[in-house]
Design a binder for these strands. Sequence first.
DNA 1: AAAAAACTGTTGCAAAAGCAACAAAAATCA
DNA 2: TGATTTTTGTTGCTTTTGCAACAGTTTTTT
Lengths: 228, 228
Amino acid sequence: MSNFVTHLSQDFNNLGVIFMDTNFDKKNFIENFKHNCNRVQIKKFLKGETVTTYIEKRNQICIVISGEIDLIRYDFNGNKTIIGHFVDDDVFGEAFYPANTNNELFAIARKNSEVLFFNYDSLFTKCKRNCDFHKTLTNSLSELFLDQIISLNLRIELLTKRNIRGKILSYFELLSKSTLHRTFILPYSYTDLADYLSVDRSAMMRELKLLIDEGFIKKNGNKITLLY
Amino acid sequence: MSNFVTHLSQDFNNLGVIFMDTNFDKKNFIENFKHNCNRVQIKKFLKGETVTTYIEKRNQICIVISGEIDLIRYDFNGNKTIIGHFVDDDVFGEAFYPANTNNELFAIARKNSEVLFFNYDSLFTKCKRNCDFHKTLTNSLSELFLDQIISLNLRIELLTKRNIRGKILSYFELLSKSTLHRTFILPYSYTDLADYLSVDRSAMMRELKLLIDEGFIKKNGNKITLLY
DNA sequence: AAAAAACTGTTGCAAAAGCAACAAAAATCA
DNA sequence: TGATTTTTGTTGCTTTTGCAACAGTTTTTT
């Protein structure tokens, strides 16, 4: 096919995997991890259930096997912020947070989900004796962490945009790139999208309307089309 | 001394190292890396010099040996945003960014600095044959990445605060914790602090004045004291 | 199938933040 | 040291964003 398509496909891969020339297969790694290491735990969660709270689980690391998990903060005014949104193969957990932030964070299953838990420390101590798989583990972990850094940097890109319009458009751009289409379905309700972009919902809706009126986007329910 | 002080000291360590019970010594690791691996490059930069641009260096990873590096974005309106601020032992580089973001990013030395460069791929291929040190490398890298994730999460915490006051106070809180004092020196000029918090400078100054008038903080040049 | 809950779309008004501009102070340069 | 550049502190005005409220949909629960 055309170079154009090839080029796009590469970008698409990069969003998840990034390094074309390393042959790290995340899915495969996680499968192996799940079956070959006796220090991990798999749990299932129904939509709405609390997966974990970020309290005194200093070395806990979680990997999303399937489903979607949100990391949520409620500040003292009751404002909800979606701090993070995790899908297949993403890592999260208190290990990634500094001790003693004043906030209470909750990881909530947005859909029915399956999550792998392990203790970061135990990997490097107890596990060593029991788990053959251990040798390649740290290597793969650093790939996983690297991916996580990339997605956090993306998030920061969004959040540093100076106004609501900038945030919305950056986010849409992102979705457009990762789906390879100018039309895509939002993975969030508008209520949650506002929380994710850290802006007021009504202000966001107003801005969306402006974007429609000015001909930048088309919107049908939660289906968005970029027109520029 | 009191439990209180002990408690604080632990927090302080956690900001940098996080895992009290793993004996990973970042400084030591980087020293070894520098001397024992022939795939790394060390360069010195004068204040204001460009360390690297994030263009087509897909696998480049950099570690700050000494000094301070800012990662800067200029958007099409000419707005400057400080996307990241890196100090001793921090990692940065295009490897941590998704391919094809529309932005041009620049890493600029804020002070005279020394930076270690390496190519992520080469570590896992060519280096293997030449470098004894390689065995422990990936393990250490994942620790380094983990620290980076923690500091990115902190950044996101700041940026998701809903107003300027929230951002300022969170940031000050952070400095206070990491210095163990209610009085501390800002590492930024106020101009740059505004860029870092992604807000307008004059609006930030106005908010600072309000915080002073309302008795929350004291300010003397770039020395801040928290009074609450 | 009815009732309850959550989400969408919208608005007027209030508050916060951004913009532009400028004088004074501080830092840097030559 | 004196000149130049950058930073600080401030303000009036404009724009953007947030808040509160409510009616109409849609989704979920019972």
